[in-house]
Design a protein around this nucleic acid. Sequence first.
DNA 1: ATAAACCTTGGTGTGAACTCCAATGCAAAT
DNA 2: ATTTGCATTGGAGTTCACACCAAGGTTTAT
Lengths: 130, 130
Amino acid sequence: MNIDTVAKKFDVTKDTLRYWERVGILPTVKRNQSGYREYSKYDMNWIFYIKALRHAGMTIEALIEFVKLYRDDHLNTDVRKSLLIEQRQDLVDKVAAINQTLNYLNYKIDHYEDHTLKYEQEKLSYEEEN
Amino acid sequence: MNIDTVAKKFDVTKDTLRYWERVGILPTVKRNQSGYREYSKYDMNWIFYIKALRHAGMTIEALIEFVKLYRDDHLNTDVRKSLLIEQRQDLVDKVAAINQTLNYLNYKIDHYEDHTLKYEQEKLSYEEEN
DNA sequence: ATAAACCTTGGTGTGAACTCCAATGCAAAT
DNA sequence: ATTTGCATTGGAGTTCACACCAAGGTTTAT
C-alpha cells in the first residue's frame, strides 16, 4: 500500500507518517524500485498502535523510548511482553488520574445547589495533609 | 498566599500561574498594596481544577471557552451546572478512548506467545469493514 | 509526448503552551 | 543603609508535533 492510501486508511496525514518514520517510532518502511514507500501489514499495525497511544496522550519522546527497546532484536519475548505491560500500566495510571477529576466533577455537580457544601468539598479536594 | 507558595503547593511554575491568569483561565488575582498577587482559596480551587483538566488533556483554548461561560454572571446555576456536565462528558469520552487502547494492549499481552493469533488479532483490531 | 498527479527529500514555518529574560520596584536581612 | 531576594511587566525564546513548501524524479492520463 502506498502512502496516500495508508494515510487515508488511518486518518493521518502523509507528512505525519513520514515524520513518525523519521523520528523512529515507525519502522523503516520498504521502498519499491522508484523509491516510493510500500507499507506492509506489519507497518500498519504499528501505525494503528502509535495512533492509539498518541491519542491517549503518550508523547513522541516516550514512544521513541518504547519502540527503541521493543524492536531491539536482542530481547526475548518475555522482556518485550513486560514492555507492553509497562505501557499498559502507564495507561491505567492515566485513566486513574482522569477518574479522580471525574469524581471531583461529579461531586461538584451533585452538590451544585448547596454552596456551603461546595466550598467545603473544594477545600477537601486538594488538602489532605492538614 | 503569595505566588511562590502557591506554585510550590500545586507544583506548577510561577510563570505558568501568571500565564493562566493572563489568558483568562484563572480569575484576576487580588494584589496587595505593593502589587504582589495574593491568592485566595477561591483562586486556588481554580488552580486545582485547571491543573487537573490540563493533565487530562484539555487544551487551554477549550478551558478559555469554558471559564468564559462559567464565570458569566448572567448565567444561573442551572446553566452553569450543565457546563460541568458537558465537561464531565468530555472526560468520560477520553477515558473510553484510552480504554479501547487498553483492550488492544490486553489482547496483545494475553496472546503474546501465539504469534499467529497475534497477527490475526492485529488485523482485526483496525479492520472491521472488510 | 506533454501534462497532470503522484512520490521523494531537505528545509522552513506554525501554533500551542509555556519558559526565560531584562528592567524595575519592593521587602527582608545583615 | 546597602545588599540580597522576591515580586512585577513586556517581550522574546523554546519545545513539541507536526504542516507546508520548493525542487526534483516517476507514473498515469490524454
